[in-house]
Design a protein around this nucleic acid. Structure first.
Length: 844
RNA sequence: GGGGCGAUGGCGGAAUUGGUAGACGCGUCGGUCUUAGGAACCGAUAGAGCAAUCUGUGAAGGUUCGAGUCCUUUUCGCCCUACCA
């Protein structure tokens, strides 16, 4: 018995695949295609377990589809622009490009060691000018279509990264990467007009049947469509303001109007720019507005103006106008009509400032005297205290009726509002795709002619200066277009732009004229299965969906709206956390297990405390380096374990015991393989083993179903079961003749999961032209089945019998069985429920 | 505050979608072999009980011949989102 040498076998097959370009594919419309894509990595330096999981899941699918005869596009590339390169370069006085290239080299080597079925000839890197020049061309294309524009706007400014962030990149008021509290700053920025497609992006979700509902819901909420009404309020006071527009979803509660609240950035605020009280209030708002506590508590503060707003439905009613901290400038019109009785925020505000609270909706089960007292009533009911609106049923009917009335009186109009904002893409950073725009001395915008692309990033520049390094590159900034002296835009594009179209580039990675070739994307797109982390549910996936619509807009040659027809979001990789007696995090590498207890390796008298399993992170030191795992146990063991313990969409817990048991299992499979080969070589001529054929068929069916439903953890269970069956069955003399054909099929089903091991075994038995083994339905029939016998719904026994047995015969058998008969002898059988070949329930 | 997901042995998780609950793995226990084992192999392992049996899928009801699965109520946990008018 030899030991399975994973090192030599894995190296052998990886070299074989590389040399033979086994996974190289071409556009070939005569073949059915399958585009399997995993989210491409940022080249941070080393792969982590999350990558191992992501790419293993994808590889299982790619290899499976390939065996099924599909022409499988399974590419890999690098999302290589971005802040970490710039920061690392600053710290170590390096060139971001060199840093990135070194990382790419390392990570490519690591990924190859995982044995992925990737067409490496299609590798792309977004920081490469062959890539980003096409991106600049797309930018200009969108610019021509007026889907890109420049405006001065309040932006989210990250003071640590010294850059602007998109709304999506601000989490709990903090920068998504730096964690710094985001400030408000007014800057001129480039925007992609994503909000133009709000409705389409929302509608498109309906057709994405193979997306997780969770992701669709998140996008839907993010787009945030709401139906309501724009109302024009007349204003009285000593300022030159005649009216203020509000957006509301509840115009039907207008008679409950008791104040009008404005955002501190509302245009009306310009009249208060010298008012010290207002400035103090404004300052207060920006303080409370950014702390997490204030958001959670939602303390509402206001600044009363000397203006009054007139209720359009009841001109006699005049209410005060406030500035309030809870009104957002970039939603609706930055102004809210306050109806305290039926909106909790308005209620809180009214209580605080002693404003009138007038109830205008009563719940169905309450009478007309119903009044709101200690909290707002936002629910359904009947309109009351509202003159001509009384009696309408709220909310649906009353809203529609009120809008009709307002429209007739020209006081307002129906409006649909979206939460989705345009995508600010300017970044004040060096390491990104330059924006192909120039300005003259007056700031007039000149797109760089496409013939002058790419706008290359200057190299070897000093990054250790405050602000955007490109600002100080005067030689680079100056440009001459048609004899005019202009200055380049020094902002670069958000790196999410790079990842918004990379899947197109994979279809035509070497095309020079344009970002892709039509015949290539016509064949390969859309991506049939996209696999990645759920953390990109909104950002990357929404941007990509927008980008396809933007390219399709006014373009008859391009009509892809949805880039990813299937989406799968895998869970995270977790590990136990450890702390030493001084409460410092301890890495699993520093721990030794003695008699089931965990001690510090360097000081074995010190016990470590074991914390809950959490997603691997450097800060908690609970990471496991895939490189060590691969060199100690092999890629196949790592692949086997990462798939085995949990369903791919859920978090998985990495453990030492787990990876060891996977490693051992491969050793067992190898021993089984040697036994099988011994038997095959004995050349048996007689006897056919039905059992092994039937078992294999059942196994094939299970594996097939589990592959189709992404239940990869169950495939591993199927493998274990198969092993123990075959390991026993092979001892039986009659097994031998039918062994090889069935064993070959089983080995093929193993190739997606254990590609090195299974291909090695297959090559030993000289199997060639591998195809995915289909199961034979006729072989699934059972000779013997177990029928459950229930008495009054309780399981009382099993009857082993032939299929298709009649109810009478079955009952006969049951009656002759002492164990079961005792439950109903001498009793009347009231009823029998017989589910053929499955169950007999006897009711007494 | 809003939305979503979930709760099954000591642990990770199965259960053909209403029909034998706990597959498979980890862990634990017992055994064989061994100088030894933290190796390999064999066996046991939801709980209670000597047993026959009984009880068991967060809790309480309901539908059904039959419920982990469907319905109602409820508790807890996780994730997302957050003053969206």
């Amino acid at each position: 018995m030899s030991r399975y040498n994973f090192k030599s076998v894995e190296t052998k097959w990886q070299n074989y695949w590389e040399k033979n370009k086994s996974f190289k594919v071409k556009t070939d419309p005569s073949k059915k295609k399958f585009y399997c894509l995993e989210m491409f990595p940022y080249p941070s330096g080393k792969i982590h377990m999350g990558h191992v999981r992501n790419y293993t899941i994808g590889d299982v699918l790619a290899r499976y589809k390939s065996l099924q005869g599909y022409n499988v596009l399974h590419p890999m590339g690098w999302d290589s622009f971005g802040m970490p390169a710039e920061n690392a370069a600053k710290q170590n006085n390096l060139d971001p490009k060199k840093w990135t290239e070194t990382n790419v080299l390392n990570m490519r080597t690591q990924l190859k060691k995982l044995g992925l079925s990737i067409d490496w000839d299609r590798e792309i890197s977004t920081c490469n000018k062959d890539y980003y020049k096409h991106q600049q061309a797309f930018f200009l294309e969108l610019f021509e279509k007026k889907l890109v524009y420049r405006k001065e706007n309040y932006v989210n400014w990250d003071p640590i990264d010294e850059t602007v962030l998109a709304n999506e990149q601000v989490i709990d008021g903090k920068g998504w990467r730096s964690g710094a509290i985001v400030e408000r700053k007014k800057l001129s920025q480039w925007f992609f007009n994503i909000s133009k497609f709000s409705q389409e992006l929302l509608d498109g979700l309906e057709k994405l049947d193979s997306w997780p509902n969770k992701v669709k819901t998140m996008q839907k909420n993010w787009i945030g469509k709401s139906f309501g009404c724009e109302i024009d309020f007349k204003i009285e006071g000593d300022l030159p303001i005649k009216n203020i527009k509000c957006f509301t979803t509840r115009p039907d509660t207008l008679f409950g109007f008791s104040f009008l609240a404005l955002s501190i950035d509302h245009e009306v605020s310009k009249f208060f720019s010298n008012d010290e009280d207002f400035l103090r209030f404004k300052n207060e708002c920006s303080k409370t507005g950014t702390t997490e506590e204030a958001i959670a508590v939602g303390d509402k503060i206001g600044f009363k103006t000397n203006l009054e707003a007139i209720n359009p439905l009841d001109p006699k009613q005049k209410v005060p106008v406030y500035f309030a901290n809870f009104v957002l400038m970039d939603y609706g019109f930055g102004a809210v009509f306050g109806c305290p009785a039926h909106d909790q925020r308005d209620f809180d505000f009214a209580k605080k400032y002693n404003l009138k609270i007038k109830t205008v909706v009563r719940p169905i089960d309450k009478d007309e005297k119903f009044t709101v007292s200690d909290q707002a009533y936002p629910g359904p009911g009947i309109i009351i205290n509202s003159d001509f609106l009384n009696g309408l049923s709220a909310p649906e009917n009353s809203i529609l009726e009120t809008i009709k009335i307002l429209e007739k009186k020209k006081l307002g109009k129906k409006q649909i509002n979206f939460r989705l904002k345009d995508w600010g893409v300017s970044r004040q950073r060096y390491w990104g795709c330059p924006i192909p725009i120039a300005y003259d001395e007056n700031g007039k915008v000149y797109p760089i002619p496409k013939s002058m692309l790419p706008v290359e990033l200057p190299e070897n520049i000093n990054l250790n200066i405050k602000g955007n390094p490109l600002d100080s590159q005067n030689n680079w900034r100056e440009i001459n277009i048609d004899g005019k002296k202009l200055f380049r835009e020094t902002d670069t594009l958000d790196t999410f732009v790079c990842s918004s179209w990379y899947y197109l580039r994979f279809c035509s990675p070497t095309e020079t004229k344009y970002g892709f070739k039509k015949e290539d994307i016509d064949y390969w797109m859309p991506v049939d299965q996209y696999i990645g982390g759920v953390e990109h549910a909104i950002l990357h996936l929404l941007y990509s969906r927008f980008f396809m619509r933007a390219l399709s807009h006014d373009n008859n040659n391009f009509n892809i709206l949805e880039p990813f027809s299937g989406l799968f979001t895998q869970g995270m990789v977790c590990h136990e956390t450890y702390k030493d007696p001084d409460n410092n995090w301890v890495s699993p590498d520093e721990i030794e297990n003695i008699n089931g207890k965990k001690y510090l390796k360097k000081n074995k008298s010190k016990l470590v405390s074991v914390g809950p399993s959490e997603s691997m992170s450097k800060s908690k030191k609970n990471t496991i380096d895939p490189e060590n795992i691969i060199s100690n146990y092999g890629a196949d063991s790592a692949r086997l374990f990462i798939l085995s313990d949990s369903p791919p969409e859920k978090d998985v817990q990495w453990s030492e015991e787990g990876i060891i048991s996977s490693f051992k299992f491969i050793q067992k499979l190898w021993k089984l393989n040697e036994k099988v080969i011994d038997e095959i070589n004995k050349n048996h001529n007689t006897d056919i083993d039905d059992e092994i054929m039937k078992y294999t068929n059942k196994y094939l069916k299970k594996v097939h179903n589990n592959l189709e439903s992404f239940s990869y953890n169950k495939i591993i269970a199927n493998l274990y079961e198969m092993y123990s069956f075959l390991n026993k069955q092979i001892e039986k003399a009659y097994t031998k003749r039918t062994l090889i054909e069935n064993y070959k099929k089983i080995l093929i089903t193993m190739t997606p999961i254990l590609p090195h091991f299974a291909n090695e075994c297959l090559s030993i038995i000289k199997a060639e032209n591998l195809k995915w083994p289909e199961y034979d339905v006729s072989m699934l029939k059972e000779d013997n089945i177990n029928i459950v016998i229930q008495i009054n719904g309780k399981k009382r026994g099993l009857v082993q019998t032939m299929p298709n047995i009649s109810e009478e015969k079955l009952l006969e058998i049951v009656k002759n069985d002492e164990k079961m008969n005792k439950y109903f002898e001498q009793k009347n059988i009231k009823k029998k429920i017989y589910i053929k070949d499955k169950l007999l329930n006897i009711i007494i």
